[in-house]
Design a protein around this nucleic acid. Structure first.
Lengths: 232, 232
DNA sequence: GCAAAAGTGTTTGGATTACACCCATGC
DNA sequence: GCATGGGTGTAATCCAAACACTTTTGC
């Protein structure tokens, strides 16, 4: 019963990836949106996506799309959900898989290319109507990001290389929509290996905060040797 | 650059679902495997999967596959990861998405149908070599199950309708490979709404345990009104 | 000095842990 | 009675929340 339809008849799908690129700026988590310069949804805002080449694996395709847009390489990509409503793409059966990347906004310079007229960072909580089912994709992918933020040290992929503890706190406060006590937050992150750079914030009109850096190698060591568990 | 290849050329993929069906029996989490009665991988063990019909959404396809095999309906299905290595299927580019279901083993009676010669429940930690990349799929899906077991009351989908607290404890112990203190486990699950049926276990050669039932409606009420958070 | 945010210490109550003990059943 | 697991209580400890206080900078 399952294979009653000739196998070859099934080769009539297309498969795409859509990238949710997260960044953090001014206390808010943003995503990168593009204004489409082609049909369908010409002129509307969307997240960057592209069809997967027939001989390309998903991870490579996601990197290709990300690199075309942001010119950044070696960014870790995380797979999100897959969306397969038969009518989600007006031009045929296109199943799409979400990938999400976390970037340091100040490190990259996204550029609109041939099929994008404009690019823009938008705070995740202030996104308007997007093309296709991209609003759904962004929402569920943000939920997945939140789960990961609680169990993996990926907040440091969003924060600048050198960050203040308050910036880190703001990231969690924004993501989970809550306010935290400064003193308690610092106690909570005590086990996470951070390097105090003993450098100060500049251009602030108050006491400058210390800058910190995530100690990646110490973290890996802790995970391996003392089976340390990141938990927020 | 992205759309430089004619759009239609991309319609040469196939898309399938593979189902990881979890059950719990004799203190172990099992998955349902089938012995393939067709090529490729004829005679080898695999997890049940099937191609998605061109006009069928993923959730429906997963239900169809599950129902064909287990005759159970109205089971909640959870999407897992998507696997897209170009060479993962010997007959062409078949991208597959994992879905997982949690069933009460004693409630169902899986039957081998036309394309399966045999079906078998196998403990998740004792699975041999499976067809395709199904070992990878099973492993990563089990990891996802574990994440969900910690944040959602889905253990009750695996446990029998009436269960003992010790069975519940064994489920977590098996999943996370640890031993828990009985008294402390019971304190931990105190906030979870369970109905003590005041019925006793039978056919045991020791003091019979009380049987419990998950109080679904109370749970939903708690979540809504007191924003209760399930956490294990 | 004042505003603003950095940074730290103390107290309290609730949760987690380790461990001990009693109970009910089959044989 | 004894083996086996069911079921509960207690004390010690750890952790999180609430809150107060001091410090350092710009203006």
């Amino acid at each position: 019963m399952s294979y009653k339809i000739k196998f070859d008849n099934f080769f009539s799908y297309s498969f795409s990836l859509d990238c949710v690129i997260f960044g953090f700026r001014e206390g808010k988590i943003h995503i990168l949106t593009i204004k489409r310069a082609m049909e369908p949804f010409l002129g509307e805002w969307a997240i960057p996506g592209d069809l997967v080449y027939p001989d390309e694996n998903l991870q490579d395709a996601a990197h290709r799309i990300l690199t075309e847009l942001t010119k950044v390489e070696n960014i870790e990509l995380h797979q999100g959900q897959t969306y397969g409503e038969p009518k989600r793409h007006p031009q045929g059966r296109v199943i799409t898989c979400a990938y999400f990347a976390l970037v340091k906004i100040e490190d990259i310079n996204p550029e609109a290319d041939s099929w994008a007229e404009e690019v823009q960072w938008v705070p995740i909580k202030e996104i308007g109507k997007l093309a296709f089912d991209h609003n759904l994709i962004v929402e569920t992918t943000f939920e997945q990001l939140k789960v990961k933020l609680q169990r993996d040290p990926i907040c440091f992929d969003l924060l600048p290389e050198k960050f203040t503890l308050n910036e880190m706190q703001q990231l969690y406060e924004y993501a989970f929509d809550l306010e935290m006590d400064k003193a308690n937050f610092r106690k909570k992150i005590k086990p996470i290996p951070l390097i105090n750079l003993h450098e100060k914030q500049t251009n602030v009109k108050h006491r400058p905060a210390n800058l910190f850096k995530f100690d990646q190698s110490k973290y890996l060591e802790l995970v391996q040797e003392e089976n340390f568990l990141f938990k927020m």
